[in-house]
Design a protein around this nucleic acid. Structure first.
Lengths: 298, 298
DNA sequence: CTTGCTTATACCCTGGAGGTATGACGGATG
DNA sequence: CATCCGTCATACCTCCAGGGTATAAGCAAG
């Protein structure tokens, strides 16, 4: 099976229409039909049931579609990492969400620069949920990831945990309380990241608590806080974020029984590159000196 | 980048010799040289430094070689799983090492058969260390794996832990002791699985204990025990294995501070197929009733 | 210098990927 | 019911890239 065939397959599986898929691929429809037929012949199973009006995936087609992502990720990871390794001064790429843990990252990078023989470090700031994608497809070598992310397929090492606070608009009914509990937030509109899976939503809200969903969807921290200030939503955020973004129109209140916000450093599982081990080790020791304090979760 | 190009690259990287690589690939040498050149041109980096006498990998080549395995695994997983899904009665394939945990597996399979709408279950017995390979390349959907294995890239759920015993030949100097400790075994010839990485060896011997290596290499349990009986080696094995294979020429003695032998059920990380969740859940509940008893580790 | 081993170059050939034109089918529409 | 439109399949052509053979070129060893 060749990558080109898989690209064709995925286009058809996405569009469920040979003509549109061919358009998307930039080829004509007949060669696409033929390529799919040939793929079916080679693998030995039918992937689509198609009459002249309808195209649908067979169970085998569904199975193949589920696997295509891994193949594309592996291939583009190979290309990306090879290209980077081929540069005159290869650098290690670390990605992290804006805001959270950047001061930690700066410290680690400074410390890593001291290591004899260390490459340059390139820090790429990425949007919510994009860190894992960048690790998977090879745009990054290491990532700092917050707790509600999907770590599957990565090796991780725990870096820091910090308590969460609720961000409330000034004048909110809960704003005069010193601290809150998860159950206090039930019934409140609660913002969700757009890409968050169900598991993420549960986790984000604090594991095992039946916190509400359905607030407006937001894409970054400033947008989130803007929505909070406007009274559109409330939000559970890590305490450090609250400390770095004081706003006159928002109050932050600790949520005592929310699951702590944890930051992990992640890298592609099974990587044996020695500098990954060195960087991770450095990050772990740095985090000890950086002391992200706060009461430990009960 | 196409899979064919990667196959060619890997052959050359393995052989470090274009002629032999071409022979292995079943093509002539000139097309292979050209294909590699074209790959280098497409990716934009040099992969090999070659004069007329020597071929060596560049740093970029090393980086690419490290990624090829993931690509091949992903591709063959796609093919295997698609083929299986295309059969008239698709079955779920579970793999496990012979001996250990087979009674558990039988119970789970019986229970799973009761589930409405459940597929047939096919059990494949595989050699040491092969379970993970089968998961990775799609020959299996689920695997029961013993503790010294490399779980990276898989999701796992803990199933059972059991203490380890040392297998000693009758008449061995330690055979008359009721129980042992790891340090008693220092200096004994200790068998290693051939594919075991360094991490595996450490783990297998009981984490953090400086147990010896260098015994004869063995490939399955019966061969291992045969070697023990012949006085060639001693072995640390899970207790259930000892109980299922009583031998007049071998005595088993508990090793109190060896790390327990744990069995986990593993599946490709990120799989969302509902039947995986159902099977795993079933396995976890079954293991509670199967009660693999024994003293918990200190 | 010759021999033997390597990779690179030159050249040819063929299979298959891609294009165009068109057929066959079925739903929508009047 | 007839027409039209959108769909996938078929037929046929073109052309290039992947593969083969022959051979040059480079280097080490004898």
């Amino acid at each position: 099976m060749e990558v080109r065939e898989l690209r064709y397959f995925r286009a058809v599986a996405d569009e469920l229409n040979f003509s549109r898929a061919a358009l998307r691929l930039g080829i004509a429809q007949p060669p696409l039909s033929r390529a799919i037929r040939q793929l079916e012949r080679r693998v030995g199973v039918q992937l689509f049931v198609r009459d002249t009006r309808q195209v649908a995936l067979t169970p085998a087609g569904h199975a193949l579609l589920a696997e295509t992502g891994r193949v594309f990720d592996a291939v583009s990871a190979a290309v990306h990492r090879t290209r980077r390794a081929g540069q005159t001064t290869p650098s290690v790429v670390v990605t992290a969400k804006a805001g959270v843990a950047t001061e930690l990252l700066r410290r680690v990078v400074r410390a890593y620069a001291e290591v004899p023989g260390a490459q340059a470090v390139e820090i790429v700031v990425s949007g919510y949920g994009e860190q894992t994608a960048m690790l998977r497809d090879g745009r990054a070598d290491l990532a700092l990831i917050g707790s509600p992310a999907d770590h599957s397929g990565f090796d991780t090492e725990h870096l820091a945990s910090e308590p969460r606070v609720a961000a409330l608009p000034v004048g909110h009914e809960l704003a005069d309380r010193e601290s809150l509990r998860c159950k206090d937030l039930i019934g409140q509109p609660m913002s969700q990241w757009p890409e968050a899976s169900h598991a993420d939503r549960v986790y984000w809200a604090g594991r095992d608590h039946d916190l509400p969903t359905g607030g407006p969807e937001i894409h970054d921290n400033s947008q989130l806080l803007e929505n909070v200030a406007l009274g559109q939503t409330v939000a559970l955020i890590p305490r450090s974020l609250a400390e770095h973004t004081p706003r006159p129109d928002i109050v932050y209140r600790p949520v005592l029984d929310a699951s702590p916000y944890t930051t992990v450093i992640a890298w592609p599982s099974g990587s044996t590159a020695p500098w990954i081990a060195r960087f991770v080790q450095l990050a772990c020791t740095q985090v000890v000196t950086t002391v992200i304090d706060g009461p430990s979760s009960p």
